[in-house]
Amino acid sequence: MADGATAGVDAGHLLPVRVYWEDTDGSGIVYHAGYLRFAERARTEFLRALGFDQSTLLNETGIAFAVRRMEIDFLSPARLDDLLEVATSVTDIGGASLSMRQRVERDGRALADMNVKLACMDRRGRPVRLPAAFRAGFAGTMSNQRAVGPRAR
């Protein structure tokens, strides 16, 4: 797997992430937007581990993924120099969408929980159905973890 990524629990994916100054506010605590960057990197590496390089995907098929919805529960702060793990798993596969659960952890303790819905789109930004190869690849990674947060109930 690429760039230090390892297979995660529940047939998902884990990405180690180090917190740098650029990720923090003036007090050394990760700024809330930093979690979005960590989650984006983890989703990208998850796709790459499944054989779906995003630039190749766009150039060869005209397909891209865009975040349609994201819910985040910030549970505890990450700090400068922390070594975090971002766990990513697929919770649902729709006709033209994927739902994922992502969790940022430090030493096994949850810092942020995220529910993410990705739309599969063409170059014009219109929804397109997930190709069969994608469905098969993602189906093999389905998590038995449910989405978290208010909409999960």
Score class of each variant (00 low, 15 high):
Val30Cys: 08
Val30Ser: 07
Val30Pro: 07
Val30Ala: 10
Tyr31Gln: 03
His32Trp: 09
Ala33Asp: 10
Ala33Pro: 03
Gly34Ala: 11
Gly34Arg: 07
Leu36Phe: 14
Leu36Trp: 00
Leu36Asn: 13
Arg37Phe: 05
Arg37Asn: 14
Arg37Trp: 09
Phe38Met: 12
Phe38Asn: 03
Ala39Pro: 00
Ala39Gly: 02
Glu40Asn: 09
Arg41Tyr: 08
Arg41Val: 01
Arg41Ser: 03
Ala42Lys: 01
Ala42Cys: 02
Arg43Trp: 08
Arg43Val: 01
Thr44Phe: 05
Thr44Gln: 11
Thr44His: 13
Thr44Tyr: 02
Thr44Ser: 15
Thr44Val: 10
Thr44Cys: 13
Phe46Ala: 09
Phe46Asn: 01
Leu47Cys: 14
Arg48Ser: 10
Arg48Glu: 11
Arg48Tyr: 08
Arg48Met: 09
Ala49Cys: 09
Leu50Arg: 13
Leu50Ser: 04
Leu50Ile: 05
Gly51Glu: 10
Gly51Asp: 11
Gly51Lys: 07
Gly51Pro: 06
Gly51Cys: 10
Gly51Thr: 08
Phe52Met: 12
Phe52Ile: 15
Asp53Lys: 03
Gln54Thr: 10
Ser55Met: 12
Ser55Leu: 14
Leu57Gln: 14
Leu58Cys: 07
Glu60Gly: 01
Glu60Lys: 11
Glu60Phe: 00
Glu60Trp: 00
Glu60Arg: 13
Thr61Glu: 13
Gly62Ser: 06
Ile63Gly: 06
Ile63Val: 14
Ala64Tyr: 02
Ala64His: 03
Ala64Gln: 10
Ala66Met: 12
Ala66Trp: 06
Ala66Arg: 11
Val67Ala: 09
Arg68Glu: 09
Arg68Gln: 15
Arg68Ile: 04
Arg69Trp: 10
Arg69Leu: 04
Met70Lys: 00
Glu71Ala: 12
Glu71Lys: 02
Glu71Trp: 00
Glu71Asp: 15
Glu71Thr: 15
Ile72Gln: 03
Ile72Asn: 08
Ile72Pro: 00
Ile72Ala: 14
Asp73His: 06
Asp73Met: 01
Ser76Tyr: 01
Pro77Leu: 08
Pro77Met: 07
Pro77Asn: 05
Ala78Leu: 05
Ala78Arg: 07
Arg79Leu: 09
Arg79Ser: 13
Leu80Gln: 13
Leu80Glu: 04
Asp81Ser: 08
Asp81Ile: 04
Leu83Ala: 13
Leu83Glu: 14
Leu84Phe: 10
Leu84Met: 08
Leu84Glu: 07
Glu85Tyr: 10
Glu85Ser: 10
Val86Asp: 07
Thr88Ile: 10
Thr88Ser: 15
Ser89Leu: 01
Ser89Pro: 01
Ser89Trp: 03
Val90His: 02
Val90Thr: 14
Val90Leu: 05
Thr91Asn: 02
Ile93Val: 15
Ile93Gln: 02
Ile93Glu: 03
Gly94Gln: 05
Gly94Glu: 05
Ala96Lys: 13
Ala96Cys: 13
Ser97Asn: 05
Leu98Lys: 03
Met100Val: 05
Met100Glu: 13
Met100Cys: 14
Met100Thr: 05
Arg103Trp: 00
Arg103Ala: 06
Arg103Lys: 08
Val104Glu: 04
